[in-house]
Design a protein around this nucleic acid. Structure first.
Length: 286
DNA sequence: AAACAGTTCAACCGCACCGAG
DNA sequence: CCTCGGTGCGGTTGAACTGTT
């Protein structure tokens, strides 16, 4: 059986039909065990060798793995009936121990909106700033929530109109919700909860090991200078956003989101005149 | 309770990039 | 340079789940 090598599939030395679709518990065990022994990477060899090592490690459990999961090549090496790509994806998106599951928090939503406005559909880059979240998860969030909201507003998700709505209506609401949840109590209480610093900025914590400053200015024009991986290279803590004093939504940044005159722009007036439903921007609805 | 519609998300696919030989 | 193998990325699909009628 020949497979497309550039697509990451097996060459003909493994005589097996590849499995597709949902992963079974047994396959997860095989893959997790392989990675724990050999680390990430060399995904193509996972498919060839995982079974062998699993049998060694778990022999005393007397676990039997069905033949539809395992396959032997001509040399008798047992492996998962999965492509290397499939193994990699399963590990990164599901099995990795630091993968966070559950709803995207308002803090994460705010970051996704901000970073997408900056980087576009660079999902993996955005994911690097959100510890434990996968690019797939962020992509899904964008498609199911953000694009859906754009449809409800009858505008293109890439249009300036929608991007402005996100920046000047959605993001401030998210920010206020975050502040309220942290005890800030909305815009009137921001000054005490989030002391303003020089310039308008959304400061993001940096790992201690990264040296220099311990914050990154997400709103600066030159933000691309700091790669996303720099932000949280040592991260992974679920409470990362609130736990550090560096996670500041400064008053200036909040004000920049409500810059004077933006609400007077022509398209917002048009929307208001056409009976635009403001409840569409209610955070509960979103 | 059943049928249908809408939504979510895990997984696949094709393509691009990179390093080794 | 060119080819090949491995890896990563973004777009898309479809099964499973949830809500509504």
């Amino acid at each position: 059986m020949e497979f497309d090598a550039r697509a990451g599939n097996h060459s003909s030395d493994v005589e097996m039909e590849l499995r597709k679709g949902p992963w079974t518990v047994e396959e997860d065990i095989l893959l997790a065990n392989y990675v724990s022994l050999h680390g990430e990477g060399r995904w193509d060899s996972v498919a060839k060798c995982s079974g062998t090592f699993l049998f060694r490690s778990f022999a005393w459990f007397s676990i039997e793995f069905p033949s539809e999961i395992l396959a032997k090549d001509r040399c008798g090496i047992t492996g998962l009936r999965r492509t290397g790509k499939s193994c990699r994806l399963r590990w990164l998106n599901y099995l990795r121990p630091d993968v966070r599951r559950g709803n995207i928090t308002p803090e994460e939503q705010l970051l996704i909106l901000e970073l997408h406005s900056r980087w576009g559909n660079r999902w993996s880059k955005i994911a690097q700033v959100l510890p434990g979240r996968t690019d797939n998860e962020i992509k899904n969030y964008w498609r199911t929530r953000v694009q859906k909201h754009a449809r409800q507003l009858r505008c293109d998700v890439d249009s300036k109109q929608f991007r402005d709505m996100v920046r000047y209506m959605w993001m401030p609401q998210l920010a206020e919700r975050i502040l309220a949840a942290s005890g800030g109590g909305g815009s009137s209480a921001q000054q005490s909860a989030w002391p303003a610093e020089e310039g308008a900025r959304l400061a993001i914590p940096l790992p201690e090991t990264s040296g220099n400053s311990n914050t990154v200015n997400l709103c600066s024009e030159s933000s691309d200078a700091a790669s996303a991986s720099d932000y949280f290279a040592g991260g992974g803590d679920a409470g990362w956003f609130q736990d550090t004093a560096a996670a500041e939504l400064s008053e200036g940044w909040m004000e920049s989101l409500r810059s004077p005159g933006i609400c007077d722009s022509f398209w917002l007036q048009d929307l208001e005149q056409s009976g635009w439903d403001e409840s569409l921007w209610n955070m509960e609805v979103i």
